[in-house]
Design a protein around this nucleic acid. Structure first.
Lengths: 202, 202
DNA sequence: AAATTAATAAAACGAACGTTCAATTAATTC
DNA sequence: GAATTAATTGAACGTTCGTTTTATTAATTT
């Protein structure tokens, strides 16, 4: 056999990406075999190589997509200039809420992007870290502005930004949809904690 | 050749543990080859199996040691009963400081224990998570007592405990000894942020 | 309907993997 | 100093890995 009836490159690539995210999130990148991935997609191993030249490029593609989507998500969620919410406290609230919701909606993707950086080559790692730094820069900007306006109490902007990112990303480590708290409640809780953490009066 | 001059089981095992922590922290557990580990220790691959029956048991031993040391560390750092520091705010301060210093002193071990849980079998994973939950229970106890005494403002004790743990463990992700902040400054900073996070007046 | 392109299958490559086994030597015990 | 135990080597086992090559068929274009 060769090309199968109804086969479509776009659909196959999307299926590979989704299956890979699930397998890597569950087993880890190194532990996932290309044969296993092919089996889950319903295709022969060789077919994967039409879409991704190597296993590492597949990982890189998944991570880049995740980071780019995160940046886009914040760009769209960010309060409009001149609005009341555009002041530091409002921007921080929007940042935390967007971050929590984005990550809860993409658990697999988040696990992959956070846990598998070691499997990237030096150059590819650098590109992903650049995107990450770009995103974190948005938070640092918010904190800096709040400090300037005197509405936040912060000892060290960079350290605080890292602490907040770690704290709010950590939600995917413990949160399970079937648990007692809803997504809304969790987001509200993290928002409150973040505001207290930066010394903002709510 | 066979037994080598000056060979000593205890020293060899310690060397294996240390080399494994370094390799797993850098490459990941699945990516580390037993041959590679043996090479770093200066021994043939077969010798490793005298000390650890399988690769997974080696990982489990490393993680258990890490968690047990963490619990012991807190037991010894914990303020004495009846002392001024034994009140919730003092215990929380001691908890954060001990946690930060413990993890900064054991970067490799921390990376392994946080990133490689997926490679454990179900039963072994459960045992490690039990130890982890025992440690986190200490923090939940502190938060609960502070809430009862009215010195903390906390919406959800469990969620707050997870958030604090994630935040303070995250220090090893970005902290580099050669950077501008000293270990003391970092510990003090995390202490301040934690106190604000739980609404304590300092 | 012929020609071309896209998508896949089938089979195989060499390399690397975790692990085992038997033999051998150093250190310790009697 | 003989017997026993501890520590390790060297070689090998079968399996699995990422990847490549070639052939084949479906879909599209001309």
């Amino acid at each position: 056999m060769a090309r199968t009836t109804g086969s479509d490159g776009e659909k196959t690539e999307a299926a590979i990406r989704e299956a890979a995210l699930d397998l890597i999130a569950r087993l880890g990148f190194e532990a996932m075999a290309m044969r296993q991935l092919a089996g889950k997609v319903g295709v022969q191993p060789a077919a994967l190589y039409r879409y991704f030249p190597t296993k590492e490029e597949l990982l890189y593609a998944l991570m880049r997509e995740h980071m780019e989507n995160l940046i886009i998500s914040w760009r769209e969620a960010r309060p409009a200039e001149g609005s009341v919410e555009e002041k530091p406290a409002g921007r921080l609230a929007a940042f935390v809420e967007n971050h929590i919701r984005f990550h809860l909606a993409r658990r697999n993707s988040t696990h992959v992007s956070n846990l598998e950086l070691r499997s990237l080559s030096e150059e590819r790692l650098k590109r992903i870290l650049d995107l990450r730094s770009q995103y974190e820069g948005e938070l640092r900007g918010i904190l800096t502005d709040g400090l300037r306006d005197g509405v936040f109490r912060i000892d060290d902007v960079s350290l605080t930004a890292m602490a907040i990112i770690q704290m709010i990303t950590g939600v995917i480590v413990w949160f399970r949809p079937e648990l007692r708290l809803s997504e809304d409640e969790v987001a509200a809780n993290y928002h409150t904690m973040t505001m207290r953490l930066v010394g903002a009066v709510m």
